[in-house]
């Protein structure tokens, strides 16, 4: 295979005296869906936050398109095509839905913003209906759609998704995942962090299993799905 688009080499990070990541290595190739699974507190969200430099890596290197991005401040990353939908969606509750989408294209100055907005509305018709409503008035599933839509507005090369299924009804989860698949088929590389290991692995190309800050297993997603240890620990079988 060619060069990975995103690579984490021996990343260590933490909050104060707590070490959340103890040296993890992850490689993501262009066009893939990579899913990171693990229990609560395994360091999944921290991994994504470290990639976006919200949490500083204490050691190790992060490479994006061959460039070391450890010291690039987080607000420069969306412009480089690295975009995150964080845990808990974090839409702007007092901005309208349209403004929320505009925020996704904040750094952009081109003429195609409106087209992209149309594209997002096409993907999530419910958002168009409510586009003048404040973001905080949406239901959980709609907020998740808005968060994904907002991330798409920045035309990401790599999209980091943190628990998109959190707190949503199974039907909505299905819908969201099919959209994620669609986004991936349009050429966006996706890193998917999930508790819902079964769904995540069934749509991913490859998977990583995190346990207390270490990568304990990495393999093709199918292989992981069929791995008896994984089945026992994460798939409840």
């Amino acid at each position: 295979m060619s060069e990975p688009i995103l690579e984490l080499r021996d990343i260590k990070a933490g909050y104060g005296s707590i070490k959340a990541l103890k040296g993890i290595n992850i490689k993501v190739y262009e066009g893939e869906i990579v899913s990171i699974i693990g229990a609560n507190g395994a360091g999944k969200s921290t991994t994504l936050m470290t990639i976006c430099n919200i949490v500083q890596a204490t050691s190790g290197d992060i490479f994006y398109k061959g460039e070391r991005i450890n010291n690039i401040v987080s607000d420069k990353l969306p412009k480089m095509g690295l975009c995150q939908v964080p845990e808990g969606r974090r839409i702007f509750p007092r901005l309208t839905i349209e403004e929320n989408l505009d925020m996704g294209a904040f750094f952009r100055n081109d003429k195609e913003i409106e087209d992209d907005k149309e594209r997002v509305f096409g993907m999530f018709p419910i958002l168009r209906e409510r586009c003048k409503q404040a973001g905080g008035t949406l239901s959980g599933g709609e907020q998740q759609m808005l968060a994904i839509g907002r991330a798409l507005m920045s035309r990401p090369k790599v999209l980091l998704l943190d628990e998109p299924s959190l707190g949503l009804a199974p039907l909505i989860v299905k819908q969201i995942f099919s959209i994620i698949k669609e986004i991936n088929s349009l050429g966006t590389t996706i890193i998917l962090v999930e508790q819902n290991a079964k769904v995540a692995l069934s749509m991913a190309n490859r998977g990583y299993v995190l346990e207390t800050g270490n990568v304990v297993m990495e393999d093709e997603a199918k292989a992981l799905l069929n791995n008896p240890d994984i089945q026992k620990a994460y798939l409840g079988e």
Partner: peptide, 24 residues
């Protein structure tokens, strides 16, 4: 204006604003 939008979104969520490219 853009600055105003940045101000309002930073007021609501600093981390998320950084993730969409606003210098908080």
């Amino acid at each position: 204006t853009r600055i105003g939008k940045a101000m309002r979104s930073t007021a609501q969520d600093k981390v998320m604003s950084a993730l969409v490219g606003i210098n908080a």
